[in-house]
Design a protein around this nucleic acid. Structure first.
Lengths: 126, 126
DNA sequence: TTCTTGTTCAACCGCAAGGTTGAACAACGA
DNA sequence: TCGTTGTTCAACCTTGCGGTTGAACAAGAA
């Protein structure tokens, strides 16, 4: 599984079935069969979904007789929220500065011109 | 595109190339060519990535002569953070109550038993 | 041991995602 | 008008994902 952690988490939550499972697990641990009950898919498909969530670190599994209780690991959510907040803040800061500029020149009242000083792109972060 | 909005946003950000584009756009609007520059893929591929971001509502495009400046729409991030925060809070609340129970019975000090009163699953939300 | 329950492994299928190339379209500049 | 620049459309290829079925494994219960 070569994907980076952030990609794995976003990708895991991109599926509505898996999001429903996360929602269910937020109310308490559950077995595979319990998680599968509300859905119209095979147990094996649910098992695969859980593997995706586990690889993303969103979920952990223990053993308890034959059962394998699934447990939500909510800390990984931080990975996403940190990423999101970073760029949201950056964008908002940019708007704030842009509005300042607009306020300082009362003429040419264009509501939202395309860009303020676009710096050169800084390349992908591998 | 039948996918629900949340799936579209998560799925759009599951790709590292697209996340890099969002990071770049947080610093200011950019054209397709500018966005493509740091990456080792064709312009057409970048155009496709932008379509995915646009369908997810993360990005909008205007026209300016031949160019099509791309603009980050940071509001859609709220969709995700709201979803994440909801279940994170729910899980944390569950732990808090669990810890209260554990504190009230000083014997049998198991650090984190599997579940407290697992309620029946409430079905998928279609 | 044998039976039963719970879960996963393996092989397969259909389809969409991300990539390519080549051609077309849009809007300027000469 | 014609060429140039910037972007998208169309067709195609390969890979991965979500689903299936059937068999295997794990751990009690009889």
């Amino acid at each position: 599984m070569p994907a980076d952690p952030l990609s794995r988490v976003f990708s895991a939550l991109a599926d509505p079935t898996r999001r429903d499972m996360v929602a269910r697990l937020a109310t308490g641990d559950a077995t595979v069969s319990e998680l599968a009950a509300p859905f119209d898919v095979s147990l094996q498909a649910v098992s695969k979904h859980l593997k995706v969530l586990e690889d993303a670190g969103l979920v952990s599994r223990s053993r308890e007789a034959q059962r394998r209780p699934v447990h939500l690991e909510a800390e990984v959510f931080d990975l996403m929220t940190k990423w999101i907040e970073r760029y949201r803040r950056q964008a908002e800061e940019r708007y704030r500065r842009l509005d300042d500029v607009l306020r300082s020149m009362p003429d040419r009242a264009a509501p939202h011109p395309p860009a303020d000083d676009p710096p050169p792109p800084e390349g992908p972060q591998p």
